[in-house]
Design a protein around this nucleic acid. Structure first.
Lengths: 339, 339
DNA sequence: CTGAAAGCGCTAACAG
DNA sequence: CTGTTAGCGCTTTCAG
């Protein structure tokens, strides 16, 4: 009695061909006569044969799997990126291993090592800390193509997909300036990560581009991604020369900013304009909905897939960096300054 | 020159033992002398040897991988569950393959088939449609342990972890009744999925338990998870016998409910009490924060892991079903009815 | 406790 | 175009 598995030899036997031929039709190789192909396909159907993936990987040295290391899927940005990446890569026959880094370098190092051992065909990573030496080393030690997501890291063997925060910020600021705003506040969290750094750069550059001096007292930084900026924004709003517009990133920063605005009796956009960064439920659900700056996940997925694919095909060129724009979407929370 | 891989034979050779012994220490098997163990460990360190996962899987018939099929990671509930599951299972050496079902049965069937072929050690699934025959068949065809997450499906070979929506709803309703509320509205989306069905059941049962007749005109159902219930809730609030409390599920339903309440000039909780289902940003960010009913992801992860583990160890008993409670958290959006 | 040997199921040369 | 034949790198009997 047949215990469990029907294997490729059973298929070949039933089809009356060699295992080599069976393998060829399974893998859709060209050089197969229609007759052979048909016989094998019939046998596969009759036996309900499913190839053993471990054996395929071992022999072909390709796992058809991509490893994803993100800071935290609970962050809507990563959840959406994951969904887009899955969509894109499953079309090419890949499945995705997902792991959360949770800003824990040791955990990230271990995860990357497992990706290595498990023979991922590619790795997509957004580690929490860009400067951690161990993480950088783990990344450089991976033998397969790696794409870094919006991180500036000293990993020459990796390609990178960078979000163009600075340019996006300049577009948003230019829009505000053109409406007449001069005092624009920026609220984000205190971090040294690329996204935050680049946004501050873009904010300052926008002022300079408009021949204005970047204000040094309109930058508010929360202690962490889940901290409030209520007190600081509130203080800003009580000043006689309060900002007429504010750019606030993420869920918690934006939430506390909106509360401070409401508590000061200010209306959006009549009294103050608001722009947020990233497509969050809080922004979409506010009335008026908050205008925003964000990347198109599908575009990100396409670019990441392209980077991975080209590395898998050719010999590794130098670590390339591709840029993806931040797009501005007006939803009605922006208007001219009051007065 | 050594092309690429250092394999277990290199390790055995350097250690001066047989590959069998090397394998034993790598797998932490008991019967190994300390001397042998040490020699092998040293060789592993010297050669920087990492076992080839595909070969291990092929030979040992265990991939140390769990497949997760969720409707959509973009839903914070699933994102949080995934994180908790990863946390729990990585401690036992597993990695997780994640796939979104997106309410597409064909996609779900394909994903489950791939999980089968890839020899997952276990599968955790929350398909979009509980009645789809193909999906049920695909689930029953899997040879490995499967845990269904909060789904009522005719899949006798699977275990299930069910969220006790009905009991949770009864607790919340009893709380409202005890404060004096009699007219409680329920806003959710139109769906035949288990969560929605059970919530409605619990809602009605709570009324009966309080010796009251469940009102038939206080149930509002959005067309989909991302539709608004604004108009219906607004109409309800304008009635002379408007509800004094409302239970609203999820991000969009809750968001539109809160807007309708605000637009009618009602204060929470003085004029109306609000309870939500599921821990969303919109609920946490509102002032007052909205009291809620939800499952503890860590508890879910522990129970799922236990179910999987017991199935992996013993011969499959009949498909078991474990229940996990919904917990009520008061955040200040509930009070006595007005008047 | 350890070594030798037999494959796990499949693909990739290589001859024909 | 097809069959034969080696292994991929590892775990697991089975003897000793």
């Amino acid at each position: 009695m047949k215990k469990k598995g029907v294997d490729i030899r059973d298929v070949a036997a039933l089809a009356g061909v060699s295992v080599g031929s069976a393998s060829r039709v399974i893998n859709g190789v060209e050089n197969v006569s229609p007759a052979t192909r048909e016989k094998v396909e019939r046998a596969i159907a009759v036996l309900d044969y499913r190839p053993n993936h471990a054996a395929q990987s071992l022999r072909s040295r390709s796992s058809k799997t991509i490893g994803c290391l993100f800071t935290d899927v609970t962050n809507p940005l990563y959840a959406r990126l994951f969904r887009a990446l899955e969509e894109r890569l499953r079309a090419e026959g890949y499945m995705l291993l997902l792991a959360n880094g949770l800003n824990d370098p040791q955990r990230e190092v271990e995860t990357l090592a497992m990706f290595g051992r498990r023979g991922m065909d590619g790795v997509i990573a957004a580690p929490g800390n860009e400067r951690d030496e161990q993480v950088v080393a783990a990344l450089n030690a991976l033998p397969m193509p790696v794409v870094l997501l919006d991180r500036d890291m000293a990993a020459p063997r990796c390609d990178a997909l960078l979000f163009d925060h600075a340019a996006g910020m300049k577009v948003a600021m230019a829009h505000l300036f053109s409406l007449g705003h001069r005092r624009v506040a920026l609220a984000l969290w205190r971090a040294t990560s690329r996204p935050v750094r680049r946004r501050i750069e873009g904010y300052r550059a926008a002022y300079r581009a408009a021949h204005l001096t970047p204000p040094s007292d309109m930058l508010v930084q929360a202690a962490s991604a889940t901290s409030s900026v209520y007190a600081d924004v509130d203080a800003l709003l009580r000043r006689p020369d309060r900002p007429t517009a504010i750019v606030a990133q993420g869920t918690y920063t934006l939430g506390s900013t909106l509360r401070a605005i409401a508590d000061n009796g200010l209306r959006i956009p009549q009294d103050i304009s608001v722009i947020t960064i990233g497509d969050t439920d809080v922004a979409r659900d506010h009335r008026p909905a908050i205008s925003l700056l964000n990347v198109d996940s599908k575009q990100v997925a396409d670019l990441v897939a392209a980077l991975l694919r080209s590395r898998m095909a050719e010999a590794p060129p130098a670590g390339r960096a591709e840029k993806v724009p931040l797009e501005f979407t007006d939803r009605g929370s922006v208007g001219p300054p009051p007065g």
